[in-house]
Write a protein that binds this DNA or RNA. Structure first.
Lengths: 121, 121
DNA sequence: TACGCCACACACAAAAATGTAAGTAATGGC
DNA sequence: GCCATTACTTACATTTTTGTGTGTGGCGTA
């Protein structure tokens, strides 16, 4: 997710779609295994690295770091470092990320409902 | 996206998150380069394979086939085959997929707004 | 007979996402 | 001095996603 070969068709297609519509741009920022879940966990309060790690089942240090970095870069998280030892770093949603709350709630409701419908298959 | 090694940590994490919440389940069904865009194009009318291909910039036969197959399997698309030559196959949204329309519209609005905010960075 | 049409299928290759294992710095407590 | 704590980093390996190129069937048209 970090380093991309900007000349690949894959990359070019991604960019084309990003330019094309805000939906694909959003998917690009929010896609992947952990990102929406991280935002979701931060919905009510700021959390520090280790707290996120505890409540995200199975995530590794490396993946958590990567995802937090990208979310920060993309303007979805604020990162606050407290100069203590051992270190304390807190993450919280940006205003823009908070505007997404109703969207992921709707997605969650749809997912739950759709799963019911799909159970036979 | 089709064949997965069900014993990998990757796969296991995916399943864990799917069980955990409808949001991750939804992301799993809708994620990837093309799926939401395909649904989006089908919002107003059914389209056949070749029509989709024309309006999805850069997609290949193979990717379109794969994505359509999965969307069908996951209950988001109906596939109708007309026994003609050359073949005609039409795709349209299921009821469940139509319930997603407001969600992707909201996502699109958010994406457009967020992109404005992010322009400097 | 040759060709184009359409909706694919197949074998293969490249790129991207995710995971594994180990190590780091600074400090406080024992 | 030794260990625990926290938020990382780095090199590497695996898995998953995406793309490339070619082929197929059956019918209509040239």
């Amino acid at each position: 997710m970090a380093k991309r070969k900007m000349t690949s068709t894959n990359s070019i297609n991604r960019e084309k779609l990003n330019d094309l519509c805000g939906m694909e741009y959003a998917i690009d920022l929010l896609g992947g295994r952990w990102k929406l879940l991280i935002l979701y966990k931060l919905e009510n309060r700021a959390l520090r690295f280790i707290e996120l790690k505890k409540i995200l089942p199975g995530i590794t240090d490396r993946m958590l770091t990567l995802q937090l970095r990208e979310l920060e870069k993309d303007g979805l998280l604020h990162r606050t470092v407290y100069p203590e030892v051992p270190p304390r770093v807190e993450y919280r949603l940006t205003d823009s990320a908070e505007k997404l709350i109703p969207v992921w709630k709707a997605l969650e409701r749809w997912g739950d409902a759709h799963r019911e419908v799909q159970l036979p298959g």
